[in-house]
Design a binder for these strands. Structure first.
Length: 412
RNA sequence: CGGGCUGUAGUAUAUCGGCAGUACGCGUGCAUGGGGUGCAUGUAGGCCGGGUUCGAUUCCCGGCAGCCCGACCA
């Protein structure tokens, strides 16, 4: 894409009243627009990052044999009454509205009830199981206090997966496979080393749920980390008994601040019974479907990446989720730069080409702010030497690559 | 939901109970052209409502909005 055609602009000033690092940088770089507290629009560059994260998650979900669908934001009241979660006293994040005919509807803050109710239409025999479905959906939650930029919003993108299994054993097997897939996802977005499987409250259904917690000061959770085991215990369930049960040594646990990027739950058959989701097993008996739920906050994940990798000059995107792979800068060498741009694009490399008529300093500063992994500079020096300067966003020095070797450089 | 702070051009900020200033941005011109360049010039502002006052952007009250701390957070 030619940068002269990108409608967004960068800003030098940090937005007033915006303390969170991720929001400051994403707004300055033109990745997001803040509509109101906890509500952000994703602009072209931000959307590209979001889509790349979704792409990785989608690949991993599909590899588990999950099927993608999308539910609705408007939800029926009667569904939520079945599990006693319509009452504002029970769930305090509801946005609710009323149809013209007086019918009350809820705006989806979660889709467990709705999706499970729908699945009743399709799951009636053990032959229909297992079934695993997921979606990327905008969740609407009336948070009392939105904060931390895009990390805790009233409107945000979540991937939620629901598993329907025949037996506890089948369920457990899939649950473990999801854990492995989640590790893989966080690895791929660059957060693998600092993301830990964490034992957390299981609510009414099981003793523990599992969270994926990423170490960052921008987080809201406190977990106790066993680095050797790559697992942690959320402060909310930390007791001597729990530490002993999990075979950890309390003295070895390290207290760290983290952000929750994923959360997975086993519901057993309880929720299915509440909702009437049963199946006929091969022995002729009617049994509740065993249910699991698995979430990843896509927009929050993007915020956490920003928090973890950015520096004083701006954003730093891991290659796997960067909006573009290459940022091509023309310094008064538009003809040659355009030629290189066409060549790279033809080779299938995603390039943002800064073809604007602005000062070199501004181009460099913007390039650092946008955080695209590779910067390629074409200028008078290039024209003399027949090569371009290539620099990684995370490096301080550039290397020289001949014009003819450039495509190959980015293809490996 | 408890507590605290704040609302001045598109953005970031200053001043003041009596003509609202600066920087960035945006427009124009000239110069410049490898780390947000220089000079000149133009553009644009007091969140909303009420009160006090000769006069309110400033003081008071209410509303709305934003930020922070805590609580909350399948």
């Amino acid at each position: 894409m030619r940068q002269s055609q990108l409608f967004t602009k960068t800003k030098k000033e940090v937005p007033k009243n915006e303390v969170s690092k991720n929001a400051q940088l994403l707004i300055r770089a033109g990745f997001v627009h803040k509509e109101m507290a906890g509500v952000y629009a994703f602009l072209p560059l931000g959307l590209r990052v979001l889509e790349r994260i979704k792409g990785i998650v989608r690949e991993e979900m599909n590899a588990l044999g999950c099927q993608e669908l999308i539910m609705t934001s408007l939800q029926r009241k009667d569904l939520w009454e079945k599990t006693d979660r319509w009452d504002d006293a029970k769930v305090d994040v509801w946005f609710k509205s009323t149809l013209k005919n007086g019918t009350e509807v809820g705006l989806g803050w979660s889709h467990e009830e709705q999706i499970t109710e729908m699945m009743k239409n399709y799951l009636s025999s053990y032959r229909d199981l297992p079934a695993n479905v997921y979606q990327f959906q905008t969740k609407l939650r009336n948070e009392i206090r939105a904060k931390s930029g895009i990390m805790r919003c009233r409107e945000f993108m979540m991937k939620d997966l629901y598993s329907y299994s025949r037996t506890d054993e089948d369920h457990q097997k899939f649950y473990d496979a999801v854990i492995a897939a989640y590790h893989h996802i966080f690895e791929r977005v660059g957060l693998g080393e600092r993301t830990f499987l964490t034992f957390a409250s299981g609510g009414a259904f099981t003793q523990f749920s599992h969270e994926f917690q990423t170490v960052t000061d921008a987080g809201e959770d406190i977990v106790y980390l066993d680095r050797a085991k790559k697992t942690a215990i959320n402060q909310e369930v930390l007791t001597d008994a729990v530490v002993a049960q999990l075979g950890m040594d309390r003295a070895a646990l390290e207290e760290v601040k983290t952000a929750e990027v994923g959360n997975i739950f086993s519901f057993g058959g309880t929720k299915s019974e509440q909702l009437g989701l049963t199946f006929k097993d091969s022995d002729g008996n009617t049994k509740p479907v065993i249910l699991g739920s698995y979430g990843i906050g896509i927009t929050r994940l993007m915020g956490v990446v920003v928090e973890c990798f950015s520096d004083e000059a701006g954003l730093v995107w891991p290659e796997s989720i960067a909006p573009f792979r290459v940022h091509l800068l023309s310094l008064g060498a538009d003809e040659k730069a355009s030629e290189i741009y066409d060549m790279l694009v033809a080779a299938g490399i995603e390039v943002l080409y800064d073809d604007r008529d602005v000062r070199a300093g501004e181009k460099f500063a913007d390039s650092d702010l946008l955080g695209i992994p590779y910067r390629v500079v074409v200028g008078s020096r290039s024209l003399e030497s027949g090569s371009v300067e290539v620099k990684r966003r995370t490096d301080t020095d550039a290397i020289s690559v001949p014009f003819g070797a450039l495509v190959e450089f980015f293809q490996k």
